[in-house]
Write a protein that binds this DNA or RNA. Structure first.
Lengths: 213, 213
DNA sequence: GGATTTATTGACTAATCGGTCAAATTACAG
DNA sequence: CTGTAATTTGACCGATTAGTCAATAAATCC
């Protein structure tokens, strides 16, 4: 009388489930980042994921569930570079590494950057809570590190959160406003060495901007 | 046999038309900047503008027409600070003025900033053409100015377009990602002096970043 | 192979939304 | 005031879209 093994919430996902959820999340990130939540239809995601709409809805009951899953799947990764800021490292060198990693992520996963940008731009309706808790906590913690460096004279005086804003803004700009960058710079964006040129420019301005004088 | 005066395309707008078009554009900017083109319904704009949907459609035949009108209405203004860059002025001082004006505009018209950010973020489907012609031309022209300043040793070596990207990114960040800034900084954003603190931080980093050393 | 669970789909529904239209109301010129 | 043009609106329509459902096909377990 133990009953038959039926599908339950806690069950580990099938191999098919694992694969298809991944395919769906990839497709959804692509579409959401380009057209936003309301601008993306379930059908579009399904087509991109090469499956029928009802099949997609078999894996995620609601459109919002897909959106939430994409959000969660990319949040952790997105904050890694900041978490890696080492209080015991050389300040300018740590900032260089931080900026470099952020630029790498923007170059390698522009869709993820645009996805977040869109979410924040529209008032962070799905991730607002985390911003006020998780993100704020992280910024507070790392701001203390910057503040120490400043008080030791290893960085020019700067209000730490603003430094983070400046770094986020400059590094993510190349992913978020890629179209504009391309419009202004034309084909040179696709030439080899463009990434290095960008990194050089951003690093040069920001690092010289915070180097003690 | 001269016929009666009928409404024609070239007619000057009535006072009512002028007022209502303005009201609609204000309402539309507000909604589009918060929810995007697809995320905003005509009904929402109409409600915000305190008029019925058919009445709104009496002034703008299509949703896209409203969007295009908002775009045009804000484009010129948005580029003013850059156009004001004076080749004969002191380089650092000119950049200070430029950055200051951009920050002022972001603070005073955050909705306009978010509106543009959203348009670009989603691939600039309505303004892409202008970016490749008008904006590129302007950037090219002003890049030549920066390049002269650099070659005169009045600025640290920097690829001019990247300098503009950095300035756009940092100044517009506070409008576009206002929610995130608020989440991290809390209530201090609304305290008097916050704008000055922001300006100080951005100016300090960017100007020191380009000051010749 | 046979039974059971998992995966997939075509067909459908209800709701939303962009846009139309004819009719009513208001502003205004003479 | 009177007639004409400008303005406003309720009611409506067609298209799109989120989500459902019953039925089918495929995978898995014994």
């Amino acid at each position: 009388m133990t009953g038959k093994p039926k599908k339950e919430a806690g069950d580990k996902p099938t191999r098919i489930q694992e694969v298809n959820r991944g395919v769906i999340l990839d497709a959804a990130l692509e579409m959401f980042s380009n057209y936003g939540l309301r601008g993306t239809t379930i059908d579009q995601i399904a087509e991109k994921a090469c499956m029928s709409k009802p099949n997609l809805l078999y894996y995620f009951k609601r459109k919002d569930d897909i959106y939430a899953a994409v959000l969660e799947a990319t949040l952790d990764e997105w904050l890694q570079p900041m978490m890696a800021l080492d209080p015991d490292g050389d300040p300018v060198e740590e900032l260089r590494k931080y900026i470099t990693r952020k630029l790498e992520m923007s170059a390698k996963k522009p869709a993820a950057s645009r996805f977040f940008a869109n979410e924040i731009l529209h008032g962070a309706p799905h991730v607002g809570g985390f911003l006020k808790t998780g993100l704020k906590e992280l910024v507070d913690r790392k701001s203390a590190v910057i503040r120490t460096w400043v008080s030791q004279g290893k960085l020019a005086p700067i209000d730490p959160p603003h430094l983070f804003f400046i770094i986020w803004a400059t590094t993510q700009h190349y992913a978020d406003f890629d179209v504009q960058v391309r419009a202004v710079l034309g084909s040179q964006v696709d030439k080899p060495g463009f990434y290095e040129q960008t990194a050089q420019a951003v690093l040069s301005v920001v690092l010289n901007g915070v180097r003690p004088r």
